[in-house]
Design a protein around this nucleic acid. Structure first.
Length: 853
RNA sequence: GGGGAUGUGGUGGAACUGGUAGACACGCUUGGCUUAGAACCAAGUGCCGAAAGGUGUGGGGGUUCGACUCCCUCCAUCCCUACCA
C-alpha cells in the first residue's frame, strides 16, 4: 500500500457511507445481548449546530460506541425538541411559518449531525411538533385530567399592553417588553396546572436511589423541592373578625415575633387600602412588574403599616401588621410572622422601619443581636415557660400548647409549586379542551385526537397566539354537541421533553407506548447540560412517575446515570462606543500587533476573556468550518481531550491543531504497516516487556476511564503516552519478530481505544492494517493481561518530616526493616537525618517512607 | 437574596482512596532539516537562585508525620432561580 497523507474528508465520507449502507446503528431488542440505552438531550432546532451540541453529542456517542464494543446492544436515538419561542420570533421577523422554519432547520441540522459521525438510530427520529408525537401528549393529558392530577386556576402572566401579548420572563427586560418597551403589567388568567406537589415526597425519596447521578444535581433538586416541617397557626386581630394565617419553620422563636408582614394583594391589605389613601398609594406604587425569583430578591424591601394589630397567640401582646413587597400571595398563606432577632431579612426590615428586635434564642453567652440576626438554633430565652428548651423541645411544646387552644397544626411544607403548563402561544401543542357554556371545560374526545395546530396565515400579528384563529376555535361540545370553543393555550414545551425518552424506546401508531418501552427503559446513561439540573430533569422524573402510575411503563426513575456537561466558552472581543459601552466584534476583525489588539482602522480592541459562545457576543465557532478544516475525528478528539466533560471547555484555535497533529501521527505510524501475523514469541527482552507492561496498563486505565469515570481526557492522554513510549527501534525496518509483535499490540490497542472517540480514522486504519472488512472491530473491546502488570521493582519515595529527600528503586520482595535501613543510607537522606534521633517512621507499602525527626 | 459549582505554570488540564504537585497537550526557547517558509525531528521549559537550596495549587487560618485533596473564613467567576431551552 502506498503511503499517503492523512485526508480526513475522504476517509470520513467513505466510512460514513458504509455505516449508512449497513444500517449499522439500528437498534432492535436482543435476547442474547444486554441492552444499553444511551441518550443525549435532544436539541432545539435553531438551524445551526453549535459547539455545545457538538460536545454533548460527542460525549454520548463515545459512551455508546464504547458500550457497543463491550458487547452491549446499544440504543442511541436522536430527535428534535421542535416547539418553542424562537420559531415564533423567526416567523414575526421573516414572515415564514414556524412549521416551515423549524422543518428546514431540522433538515440542515441533521446533515450537520451526520457529518460528526454520530452512531444514531435515525429510524426512531422524533419531531415533537409532529401530530404523531403530540397526539399522545394530548391523550396523556386527558388521562391525567381523569386521574385528578390537573387543576385549573387563576395565575399571573406578563402582559405587554402595547403588543397585546403575553411575554416570557426572558422577554421582559427591566420590567419592560423587549419589543414594545412598554411597562409590563401582571394579569391574572385561567391556567392549567399539573399537581407535581402530589409527588413531592416520591420525587424527593427517588433521589436516594440515583447512585449514578452527580451529587450536586441531587442536592439542587432536594433544595428545590424544599421539604420543611413547621407550624401553621393564626393570629387574631384586634377589633376585627378576620384572622391572619401564617406558617413558620421556627416556632421556637415565636416570642421574638414583633410584627407580621402580608402581601400587597392579601385580603387584609385589600381592606386596609380602602380606608387609607397612603396604603392605597403604596400598593399601587409597588406593584411588581418583574416577578422572577431573582428580581424579587434583589429589589429594595419596602413596607407600610396597616394600622391593624395582631394578637400574639401566647403573650397576647399586640404587634403591628405591615404590608411588605417581599411577601408573595402565591406562596404559603401570603403572610408571615416576623422575628427580626433570628431572621436576617426580618432584621433588615425592622432596622429600616424602627421596629423592635428581640433576642429569644441563645447560642452562646457572648453572641448578641447587635449587627445581625442569629439564625442558628440554640436554647430559648425571654420566652417565659419555654426558657431553656432547645429547638426540638420548644417545637413540640409550643405546637402542643397552641393545638390545645385550637390554633395550630404541625405541617410539612414544600417549596415546590404545582407546574403551570398553559402558554398563550401558537407554536406549541394545543391543550385538548373544549369550553362549553353548559358543560364547562370538557376534554376533547379521544377519537378526535390530535387537535392539530391551524396552518398559519401569511401576515401574522405581532403577538402570536392561538386565540387569534377564530375559525379554528369554533367547534362543538363533545358532551352536548352545542357550539363551543377550543382552549387556545398550548403546553409548556417542557411537556414534550418530559417523555421523549420513553417514546424513543417504543413508538406504536395506535398507542402512546408499547411493549418495547420496558425493554429499553430506563435510560442507562443520560447526557446533557448542567443548566437543566432542576427544571427539565425534575419534570422528566415527574412524568416518569405519571407514566408508571398510568401503567404505561414499569420503572420509577427515567435516567439511571446522568452526566452533566459544562459549557463551551471562547474569547470575546469588544470595542468601546462613544458612551464607553461595549460593542461586541468578531475575532476575525481583530489584528494582533505585539501585545496590542486593534481593528483595521486602528481603534483599540478589548478582550472580555472566556465567555459562553453566543450570538450576541459574536464569539461562536462554527462546527462546520472546523469539520471542513480538520475533519470530524479531530473535532471530536479535541472536544474530549481538552477538558473533563463536567467542566466548561475553552475553545482554542491553536490547541485543536495539536489534536490534528496527533491523528496525523497515528496515521503516519499505522497507515504504512500491515499486521505482522506471526505466532507470539516465547521470550521477550526487558525493553519489550516494558512496552507490553505499558500497553496493558494503558488498556486497563482507559477501560476504567471510559466505563467508570467518564474521564475521556485522561484516557486520551494515556494513549498518547503509550505511543510516546514505543522505542524507535521497534518501528524500524530491521525490528525483530518480538519487537514487531509488541508494536502490533500497541497498534491494535491504540486503534481500539481511540475508536469510540475517533471512529472514522480508527475503522479505516483497522481495515487497511488487518486486511479485514472490519465487521467485528466496532463490536469488541480488548482485554488486558493481569500477569503482565506484575512488577518486580517499585520506586520508594523517602521523606523527612514530609518533604521528599530521596528516591530508591527497590524490589517488591524486600521487607520493611531492610527497606528502612536502605532508605536511611540514601546519601541525601543521610545528610539531612545527620544522626538525629528518629521520633517516628511512617511507611506506606510500596510507595513512601517518612522519617519524623 | 437563595441554591449549586469552579479557582493548580504563559495556556487547557493531570494528580482516581490524605502520600513524588504540574502527567498529557498548547505555547515559547534553542538546535537540526530547508534557498526560505510550512511541516517534521531533537533538547529545554512552575517561580527565585550561578549552584546548594528555597518556594509554590485564589487569599487568610486550622487539623495531620504528610493537605490541590479534610475543616473554618474571605475573595473572584460561572450556572439555575419555576414562561429561554
Amino acid at each position: 500500500m502506498s503511503v499517503t497523507e492523512y485526508n480526513p474528508a475522504e476517509i470520513e465520507n467513505t466510512i460514513q457511507e458504509s455505516w449508512r449502507e449497513n444500517n449499522a446503528y439500528k437498534a432492535t431488542p436482543s435476547k442474547t445481548k444486554n441492552k444499553f440505552y444511551c441518550l443525549s438531550m435532544f436539541p432545539y432546532p435553531s438551524g445551526k449546530l453549535h459547539m455545545g451540541h457538538v460536545r454533548n453529542y460527542t460525549i454520548g456517542d463515545v459512551i455508546s460506541r464504547f458500550k457497543r464494543m463491550q458487547g452491549f446492544n446499544v440504543l442511541q436515538p436522536m430527535g428534535w425538541d421542535a416547539f418553542g419561542l424562537p420559531a415564533e420570533n423567526a416567523a414575526i421577523e421573516n414572515n415564514v411559518s414556524p412549521k416551515k422554519w423549524t422543518n428546514k432547520n431540522i433538515e440542515s441540522m441533521k446533515v450537520q449531525l451526520d457529518a460528526l459521525g454520530l452512531s444514531y438510530d435515525w429510524s426512531r427520529e422524533i419531531n415533537t411538533s409532529s401530530p404523531d408525537y403530540y397526539k399522545w401528549e394530548q391523550w396523556f393529558f386527558i388521562q391525567l385530567l381523569k386521574a385528578g392530577l390537573v387543576e385549573r386556576k387563576k395565575s399571573e402572566v406578563n402582559w405587554d399592553p402595547v403588543d397585546k401579548t403575553v411575554l416570557a420572563n426572558e422577554q421582559v427586560i427591566d420590567g419592560k417588553g423587549w419589543r414594545s418597551g412598554a411597562e409590563i403589567e401582571r394579569k391574572k388568567i385561567d391556567q392549567y396546572f399539573l399537581k407535581i406537589t402530589n409527588y413531592a415526597d416520591e420525587l424527593l425519596e427517588g433521589l436516594e436511589s440515583l447512585d449514578n447521578w452527580p451529587t450536586q444535581v441531587k442536592v439542587m433538586q432536594t433544595n428545590w423541592i424544599g421539604k420543611s416541617k413547621g407550624l401553621s397557626f393564626h393570629f387574631e386581630i384586634k377589633n376585627s373578625a378576620e384572622i391572619l394565617e401564617v406558617f413558620t419553620t421556627r416556632p421556637d422563636t415565636i416570642f421574638g415575633a414583633t410584627y407580621c408582614a402580608i402581601a400587597l394583594d392579601h385580603p387584609l391589605a385589600e381592606i386596609a387600602k380602602k380606608e387609607d389613601k397612603l396604603i392605597k398609594n403604596f400598593i399601587a406604587e409597588n406593584q411588581i412588574n418583574e416577578k422572577t425569583e431573582a428580581a424579587l430578591a434583589k429589589q429594595e424591601k419596602k413596607g407600610i403599616d396597616t394600622g391593624l394589630k395582631a394578637i400574639h397567640p401566647i403573650t397576647k401582646k399586640l404587634i403591628p401588621i405591615w404590608i411588605a413587597n417581599f411577601v408573595l400571595m402565591e406562596y404559603g398563606t401570603g403572610a408571615v410572622m416576623c422575628v427580626p432577632g433570628h431572621d436576617q431579612r426580618d432584621y433588615d426590615f425592622a432596622k429600616k422601619y424602627s421596629l423592635p428586635i428581640l433576642q429569644v434564642i441563645e447560642t452562646d453567652a457572648d453572641q448578641k443581636i447587635n449587627d445581625e440576626a442569629i439564625e442558628e438554633k440554640g436554647l430559648l430565652i425571654n420566652s417565659d415557660q419555654y426558657n431553656g428548651l432547645n429547638f426540638d423541645e420548644a417545637f413540640i411544646q409550643i405546637a402542643k400548647d397552641l393545638k390545645n387552644k385550637n390554633n395550630a397544626e404541625v405541617q410539612t411544607n414544600f417549596r415546590l409549586r404545582d407546574w403551570g403548563i398553559s402558554r398563550q402561544r401558537y407554536w406549541g401543542c394545543p391543550i385538548p379542551i373544549i369550553h362549553c357554556d353548559d358543560c364547562g371545560h370538557v376534554p376533547v374526545a379521544e377519537k378526535d385526537l390530535p387537535v392539530e395546530l391551524p396552518e398559519i396565515d401569511e401576515n401574522t400579528s405581532r403577538g402570536m397566539s392561538l386565540s387569534g384563529f377564530d375559525e379554528w376555535k369554533k367547534t362543538h361540545c363533545p358532551d352536548c354537541n352545542k357550539e363551543a370553543v377550543r382552549e387556545t393555550d398550548t403546553f409548556d414545551t417542557f411537556f414534550e421533553s418530559s417523555w421523549y425518552a420513553a417514546r424513543f424506546a417504543s413508538q406504536p401508531n395506535d398507542s402512546m407506548l408499547g411493549e418495547e418501552a420496558d425493554h429499553w427503559l430506563p435510560v442507562d446513561h443520560y447526557i446533557g447540560g448542567i443548566e437543566h439540573a432542576i427544571l427539565h430533569l425534575l419534570y422528566a422524573r415527574f412524568f416518569n412517575l405519571l407514566l408508571r402510575d398510568q401503567n404505561l411503563i414499569k420503572s420509577s426513575e427515567p435516567f439511571n446515570r446522568l452526566l452533566t456537561q459544562g459549557m463551551v466558552l471562547a474569547d470575546a472581543f469588544y470595542i468601546k462606543d462613544e458612551n464607553q459601552n461595549p460593542e461586541w466584534i468578531s475575532k476575525e476583525c481583530v489584528n494582533t500587533d505585539k501585545d496590542k489588539l486593534t481593528l483595521n482602522d486602528g481603534r483599540a480592541v478589548f478582550k472580555d476573556g472566556m465567555s459562553k459562545m453566543s450570538k450576541s457576543k459574536l464569539n461562536g465557532i462554527d462546527p462546520n468550518i472546523m469539520i471542513e478544516k480538520y475533519g470530524a475525528d479531530t473535532v471530536r478528539l479535541y472536544m474530549m481531550f481538552t477538558s473533563p466533560p463536567e467542566q466548561s471547555l475553552e475553545w482554542s484555535d491553536t490547541a485543536i491543531e495539536g489534536s490534528y497533529r496527533f491523528l496525523r501521527k497515528v496515521w503516519n505510524l499505522i497507515s504504512k504497516r500491515k499486521i505482522y501475523a506471526k505466532e507470539a514469541p516465547q521470550e521477550f527482552t526487558k525493553a519489550e516487556l516494558k512496552l507490553r507492561y505499558k500497553s496493558h496498563q494503558t488498556l486497563k486505565k482507559v477501560t476504567n476511564d471510559f466505563a467508570e469515570r467518564n474521564s475521556f481526557n485522561t484516557a486520551i492522554a494515556s494513549v498518547m503516552e503509550l505511543l510516546n513510549a514505543v522505542p524507535d527501534s521497534f518501528k524500524a525496518n530491521d525490528a525483530t519478530d518480538s519487537e514487531q509483535y509488541c508494536l502490533d499490540e500497541v497498534i491494535q490497542f491504540t486503534l481500539k481505544m481511540l475508536s469510540p472517540i475517533t471512529p472514522h480514522i480508527s475503522l479505516f486504519l483497522w481495515k487497511e492494517y488487518s486486511g479485514s472488512d472490519g465487521a467485528e472491530f466496532e463490536n469488541s473491546w480488548p482485554i488486558f493481561n493481569e500477569e503482565l502488570l506484575k512488577l518486580e521493582n517499585f520506586q520508594l519515595i523517602i521523606q523527612v518530616n514530609g518533604k521528599v529527600r530521596g528516591k530508591e528503586i527497590l524490589s517488591v520482595s524486600m521487607g520493611q526493616d531492610e527497606l528502612e535501613n536502605l532508605a536511611k543510607e540514601n546519601e541525601n537522606v543521610k545528610k539531612i537525618l545527620a544522626n538525629q534521633p528518629i521520633k517516628k517512621v511512617i511507611y506506606i507499602k510500596e510507595k513512601l517512607i517518612n522519617f519524623v525527626i
